[in-house]
Nucleic acid binder design. Sequence first.
DNA 1: CTGAAAGCGCTTACAG
DNA 2: CTGAAAGCGCTTACAG
Lengths: 342, 342
Amino acid sequence: MPTIRDVATRAGVHPSTVSRVFTGKTQISEVTRVRVLAAADALGFQPNAVARSLSMQRTNMIAVVVPHAFDGYFEDSYFPEVMRGVLRSAYKHEYRVLVGGSSGRADEIVQLFDIVGSRQADGILVLSNRLDVDIVGALCNQNIPFVLMGKPTPEYEEVAWVDSNDAAYTGQVVDYLIGLGHRRIAYVGGDPDVLVTKERQRGYCEAMARAGIEIVPEWIDYGFFVEDGGYQAVQRMRRLNGDAPTAYYAANDLMALGILRALREQGIDVPGEISVVGTNGSLISAHSHPPLTTLHVPYADMTAKATSILLQSIHTGDMPKAQHTIDCQLIIRESTGPAITM
Amino acid sequence: MPTIRDVATRAGVHPSTVSRVFTGKTQISEVTRVRVLAAADALGFQPNAVARSLSMQRTNMIAVVVPHAFDGYFEDSYFPEVMRGVLRSAYKHEYRVLVGGSSGRADEIVQLFDIVGSRQADGILVLSNRLDVDIVGALCNQNIPFVLMGKPTPEYEEVAWVDSNDAAYTGQVVDYLIGLGHRRIAYVGGDPDVLVTKERQRGYCEAMARAGIEIVPEWIDYGFFVEDGGYQAVQRMRRLNGDAPTAYYAANDLMALGILRALREQGIDVPGEISVVGTNGSLISAHSHPPLTTLHVPYADMTAKATSILLQSIHTGDMPKAQHTIDCQLIIRESTGPAITM
DNA sequence: CTGAAAGCGCTTACAG
DNA sequence: CTGAAAGCGCTTACAG
């Protein structure tokens, strides 16, 4: 690989001059510019990104780490939507995205701090709504820009985040089901340790309380965001007989699909006998049978926004502080209907 | 950020010694090792990845570039499956994945050569089955390890690739439909310029020819891999009246879903009147109405394999040469049935 | 506008 | 086992 020195000798200039024509921030006489470019072209020279990064103290990369341990992670629309949003913003600012894998939640934190600590990227997007521990404090000490997907605990309210108000919107879904006459409503969350699961559960509980409905503990279950998790939740809840739910809220569409499958197998009509609501508004929700009523969460917009905030702060040099709440939307389709009177 | 020098002074050793304890390839006396580690710990030191990369001439990253310009790209299972496979292999070898965005096909090539030319990664996975131009020659000149997803043209047969034998398997699907009594079979490809579209079309044409069926030109159409593309293809083909297809093969499940939607709107029964086959075997195909017969392509396994080959060759230092063909599988569900006699 | 030099933060042959 | 030095390939104040 030719370096800047090779180009310099061929063009008969100093290496620093070659550097200047490639960085382009400084005045260069047209004649040497042309000469340098010609030499570079002849040699097939392109500046080495790593050397430039070291010198400029900037990698032009932002990082995101992903727990590829969970099967459902790549089946759910969450991951592709996150990537879509990140890439949309990053590409616009000529940044690239560094994605690190991990083998589960604990390792996700390890990988995250590895990237951050070794300064492998200029900033990091933290998928904290799918995380179970509070890492904000530790992250602040690292003194690297980061933005959270999901609101942090009150003590860290000054850090940057983008949130989708999960508790409130889940509460709205429950209100909607109650409005339909349902009272025995199930909550099927994802991984129980994860922020988004807890938030949605809180919203569910609050909405039930507002309506004066006492929650049977068995109505709360976890499907770990996978299709079969929804399926299993139904198996468990059907054993409640008279207490069995007439409506299910699932924290993603995958689990809702599993719920539909379980119900179909038992010959139960949706929405005739039981209503089902999913979350995310993934493409799949529109094509299931019946088409799923779902709480649409615009994850791509969320992460695009988060990424913008991140890049902005990398650009200015101070820690990101912007905070942003995005709106979700209940898409009513054919999997929900009035509760039957028993 | 503390550097290796800070640690060295605090531990009372030479910087090179600090480096040695962190690289761990060399003998270090236990006492200085402990002293250095203590100093590093006290300062919160972690080696700078960029500096290390420059020095070692290795980034520990592999790259993949993705055209985020196409809406369907993140809705289809292709992208998440590719990432799942790449991450699976990369993580195992402690590599990270650099993903570059691009705004369309031409730019995809630009971004790819930018990454490669600036040595931003140690190797690159080229999603060539979704590419329309031949870049292998240019890539070879760059002298960086790469592996192709999709077999190259015969002149480059010595480069490394992993292929899914698209023509053969699509032919098999067509054989299956012909076996069911269908003769008016439609081919709905993705982007017409892209390798996988051409290959599948070739397989389709060959299978039809083998059966002695003359293809009506209108039976071949393109849906650009998006749901609405499948929908529109049906709209066009229904105008053929007596020549209208009784079976549709779509090059991904998304388009097959669009086909189902169009047919449903027209009150046409699937598979009673018309059969539909999708491709990829995405989760969505199992939950559509009716559940989709689909050609499962194990993209995650493919890319995991490709990534292994890539990492292997980065490790040994010579250009990758391994070539691998993976098997696909026709999953028969409820969207296909015997042709009705007219 | 351009050259010469120092520096970014590591690694690693070379001595000892 | 450890130190001193050179080098990885750039960028950028500092002179002129």
